[in-house]
Design a binder for these strands. Structure first.
Length: 420
RNA sequence: UGGGAUGUAGCCAAGUGGUAAGGCAACGGGUUUUGGCUCCGUCAUUCGAAGGUUCGAACCCUUCCAUCCCAG
C-alpha cells in the first residue's frame, strides 16, 4: 500500500521558537482586532488565554510556553471524574503560584457523566465500541470547558494536545481587516507524527476550534519535558496515564490496565439497572465460507471487531473477531486472512471543509496512530461513505473515521456506523 | 466380542535410540490520551501407566489402561 508520510518526519529543532509559536496560526487571531472586538476583550494588546491543565506535563508545558510568550494566562482545571478528587492536584496549584498565574477549577463532573460516561456505557451495551476521548474533546474540553474559559474572560482556550491549526482554503485571506467574517481554522496533524492527537480532536466543530490553541503543535515529547524542566517546575502528575481516564486499573483483583473498562461498565450498568448482554455461540468462519460453532462467548460487549486476545479459543492459527451479530447474540471469528474491510459508513459527520473543496486524493484514519490510508469519500445526507483503496484492518461501530488531505489537514470526521 | 488405529503441555503438533521443535491459548511486560492491532518475555526434568532391554528410551520389547474406526 502506498506509503506517504503525513508530515515531515524530522521534528523542528529544539528549543522551539516562541516566535514561531506566536506567529503560527496556532496563535493567529489572538492579536486579531476583530476577534477581540467580538470578545469584548478589555485589553486588545494583551489577550487572555485560558489553558486547560490536568496536572500532566503536556498541559503544564502549554502554560509555560504561553506565559513565556507574554500572554495573560489563566490555568483552568476541570473536574471530570464523578468519584474523583474535588480539587486540583496539589502540585498544580504550586506550579501556577510559581508562575504567578491564577488557577481556576471548574466542576464539570455532571457534564462528563452525561456527555461521556453515559454514552460510553450505552454504546457498549449495544455492542458498539465507543471512543470516549473523541467525545470528551468535542463535548467537554471544547464544549463546556471552553464555555467556562470564555465566561472567565478568556479569548482562547489552549490545551496540551499535539495537534495543529492551519488556515482553511475557504478562509478570508485578510481576516484581520474583515470584521464581519470569522476565520475558522482547520485542524491538522501535529509535527511529531508519533504524538499526533488530531484523530481524537476530529469531531470538534470548526467554530469551536477557532477558540482553540495548541502550543505544542510543533514539538515532541522530549522537548515538552525539557521546556517544563527549564521553567523549574515539577510535574504534578508525572505518570503518563494512557488508558481510559475514568476507568483506571484496579490495583487488586489482577485486572490489567487494558481490561479496566470492563469492571467499570459492569459497575455502571449495575447502578443503572441495565442488563448486560449475556453469553452466546462463537462461530468459526473458514476460508471456504463455512461456519461451525466452536465455543461460547461471555457477552458480545466484551469483544470488538478485529480483537484477537481474550477469545480463549485454541486453534491451529490465531483467530480474530470478524463480526458481532447482536440480533442472534453471535460472535463470528476467523483467521486473519478474512479480516479486511473495504468500506465504512459513518453517522452525521463533522464537516470541516465543504466537500467541493476537497482534493482528489484523500486519506482516512480509522484509528489513532494508524498511517492514513488512501480512500474515496462521499457525503450522503451529511454522513460519510468511505471506500478504502486497499482492504484495512477493521475498525468498529462507535469508532471515529477521520478524513485527511495529504498535508495532514482534517477535512471531516464521523462515527462509524457500519462497515464491510 | 473379533480386526485395525492412536495416545507428547489447556488445544493442535514435530520428534523412530543420544538427552522434548513450532503454532494456538494463557500469563507477565512494552507501546498507546479510546477499543483493538502489534512487539517482547514466561509456559512439559517430561512424552497414557507399569515393567524390561540399553552406557543412554518419547522412540525397541511385554503387559495393562483409555480413545477412535471397521466388523458383528
Amino acid at each position: 500500500m502506498p506509503q506517504r508520510p503525513l508530515l515531515p518526519s524530522s521534528p523542528p529543532s529544539f528549543p522551539p521558537s516562541l516566535m514561531s509559536c506566536v506567529s503560527s496560526y496556532a496563535l493567529h487571531g489572538v492579536n486579531n482586532k476583530g476577534v477581540n472586538k467580538t470578545m469584548n476583550a478589555p485589553h486588545t494588546h494583551s489577550p487572555t488565554v485560558a489553558v486547560a491543565v490536568s496536572g500532566g506535563v503536556d498541559s503544564l508545558c502549554a502554560v509555560v510556553m504561553l506565559h513565556n510568550a507574554g500572554f495573560r494566562v489563566l490555568a483552568l482545571h476541570g473536574l471530570f471524574l464523578p468519584d474523583g478528587p474535588t480539587v486540583a492536584p496539589a502540585g498544580l496549584a504550586e506550579a501556577c503560584a510559581t508562575l504567578g498565574i491564577p488557577l481556576h477549577v471548574a466542576d464539570l463532573r455532571e457534564a462528563f457523566q452525561r456527555e461521556v460516561l453515559n454514552p460510553f456505557a450505552a454504546a457498549y451495551a449495544q455492542g458498539r465500541t465507543p471512543n470516549p476521548c473523541a467525545y470528551c474533546n468535542r463535548a467537554i474540553k471544547f464544549g463546556v470547558l471552553l464555555d467556562t474559559a470564555l465566561a472567565l474572560g478568556a479569548d482562547k482556550l489552549a490545551t496540551g494536545h499535539y495537534a495543529r491549526l492551519v488556515p482553511g482554503p475557504d478562509a478570508p485571506t485578510d481576516a484581520g481587516e474583515d470584521e464581519t467574517s470569522e476565520t475558522y481554522p482547520l485542524l491538522a496533524a501535529a509535527a511529531d507524527a508519533a504524538k499526533d492527537q488530531s484523530y481524537f480532536l476530529s469531531l470538534v466543530p470548526r467554530q469551536r476550534l477557532s477558540r482553540a490553541l495548541f502550543p505544542l503543535y510543533g514539538q515532541n515529547k522530549e522537548q515538552t519535558r525539557a521546556i517544563v524542566a527549564a521553567a523549574g517546575l515539577a510535574v504534578p502528575l508525572p505518570s503518563e496515564s494512557q488508558d481510559i481516564c475514568f476507568a483506571p486499573p484496579t490495583a487488586q483483583a489482577g485486572i490489567s490496565a487494558a481490561e479496566a473498562y470492563r469492571p467499570f461498565l459492569e459497575r455502571h450498568w449495575q447502578a443503572a439497572g441495565t442488563i448486560a448482554p449475556g453469553p452466546g455461540p462463537v462461530l468459526l468462519l473458514d476460508a471456504a465460507g463455512n461456519k461451525r460453532e466452536i465455543a461460547q462467548h461471555k457477552g458480545l460487549w466484551r469483544y470488538t471487531e478485529g480483537q484477537r486476545k481474550g477469545l480463549g479459543i485454541a486453534h491451529t492459527e490465531p483467530l480474530f473477531v470478524l463480526t458481532k451479530d447482536s440480533a442472534t447474540n453471535t460472535l463470528v471469528v476467523g483467521p486473519r486472512a478474512l479480516l479486511g474491510i473495504r468500506t465504512c459508513v459513518t453517522g452525521p459527520a463533522n464537516i470541516a471543509l465543504p466537500p467541493h473543496l476537497w482534493p482528489d486524493r484523500l486519506l482516512v484514519r480509522l484509528r489513532h496512530r494508524q498511517r492514513p490510508c488512501p480512500a474515496s469519500v462521499q457525503v450522503e445526507d451529511a454522513c460519510l461513505r468511505i471506500v478504502l483503496d486497499e482492504p484495512q484492518f477493521p475498525t468498529a461501530p462507535g469508532q471515529v473515521a477521520a478524513v485527511y488531505d495529504e498535508e495532514g489537514r482534517v477535512l471531516t470526521a464521523g462515527v462509524v456506523e457500519e462497515m464491510a
